[in-house]
Simulated scan of single mutants.
Amino acid sequence: MRGRVAICILVCVTVLRIQETTGTDGNPALNKPTSASSMLGFASSTAVDGKNDTHWGSQSCFSVDFSDPDHWWQVDLQYQVLVTEIKVSSRSDCCPERLHDFSVDVYDTDPTLNPLSPAKQCYFYSGSVTSPGVTVTVTCTRPVSGRYLRLTGKNRINDVDVLQFCEVQVFGATETHSTSCSTLTQQRGKRFSSVLVHDLQSHVNDPAACASVCERDIRCTGFNFKLTEGTCQLVRDTEIGPTVADASWNCYQYEPCWVPCPA
């Protein structure tokens, strides 16, 4: 327990307590992978291409197919993001009213691969956009955390009523271990042997600096630090695997914060 307290204090003192916005102008959805229940004309990625041209002829607008009974569009933010607000732009040359009655939900895992992944609702937009080329700002009822953001069309009126818009912008903060409050536990003379261990590209010459880099990346589940060379290796996006004995290394693993870090 004393070792856990010590490393917790080390991390909390040496790491700046910030939430880092991502993407241009704080839009983590920009140019990220997208998917949809169907597509009509242009790819689902046009909705996050950064072009706010709302004319269909610009080839920068998205629509599901007319024959699609289940209307949704989704973006993989690729990181855990605390979503606070989104902006959705309607089409300007026709049919702005097609942007109506839609739900904005956030998921931790991809709901297309895991249908049981629970949806965390940011907001349900009730009503219809009546003016062409309008950008609707939707503020979450409460900030919601997740990696996948989905817009789902509700209350379809007729066969030509489809989920259709030209640009989606997401605003929020990338979550870090600071915001989720975890602690690092140390094992001396051991290292993680996971295949997902990666050497850092930049030189990090002490455990505190290595912890700082790891804490700022919510994907980082732990790290190895080689004492003789100052080598820092991060473990990302995986359950920490078994350790191997190696006197020249120490390893550190994130766990739930049993001991609250000092403010």
Rank of each mutant, 00 (worst) to 15 (best):
S212E: 11
W249N: 02
C8H: 01
D246V: 06
G189S: 04
A208G: 04
C232N: 07
E167W: 03
H203V: 10
I9W: 01
P262N: 09
V138Y: 00
P28G: 05
C94I: 08
E215Y: 01
A36I: 09
Q164K: 10
A29I: 03
I86F: 09
V81A: 00
D108S: 14
V13G: 01
S89F: 06
L163E: 07
A245D: 12
T176G: 14
H203I: 10
P33E: 07
K154D: 11
G133V: 03
H203Q: 11
E20W: 04
L200P: 00
T46P: 02
G172T: 04
H177K: 10
A263R: 12
S44L: 08
T243H: 08
Y148M: 05
F66T: 10
V136H: 02
A29T: 03
L234T: 15
L151T: 00
L82V: 01
E239N: 13
T112R: 10
E167N: 15
V83H: 08
E97K: 13
S145K: 14
D49L: 07
S212D: 13
P207D: 06
P96G: 11
G146V: 06
N158Y: 14
T231N: 07
L151C: 05
I157R: 13
G230I: 11
D105C: 07
S38P: 08
F42M: 07
V244Q: 11
S126C: 02
V144E: 10
Q253T: 15
F42I: 04
Y254S: 03
G146Q: 06
C251R: 07
R236M: 14
L99G: 05
T24L: 12
T183W: 01
S38V: 00
Q59H: 15
S89I: 02
S182P: 01
H198L: 12
T14D: 02
A36R: 13
Q233T: 12
V104S: 06
W258K: 13
F66P: 02
L113K: 14
Q186E: 13
E85H: 11
S248H: 13
Q186G: 01
M1Q: 10
V235T: 13
R191A: 05
D108Q: 13
V160C: 02
R216V: 00
T183C: 15
Q78C: 11
D49W: 07
K226E: 15
V134D: 05
G172D: 03
K190T: 02
E175D: 09
D93Y: 00
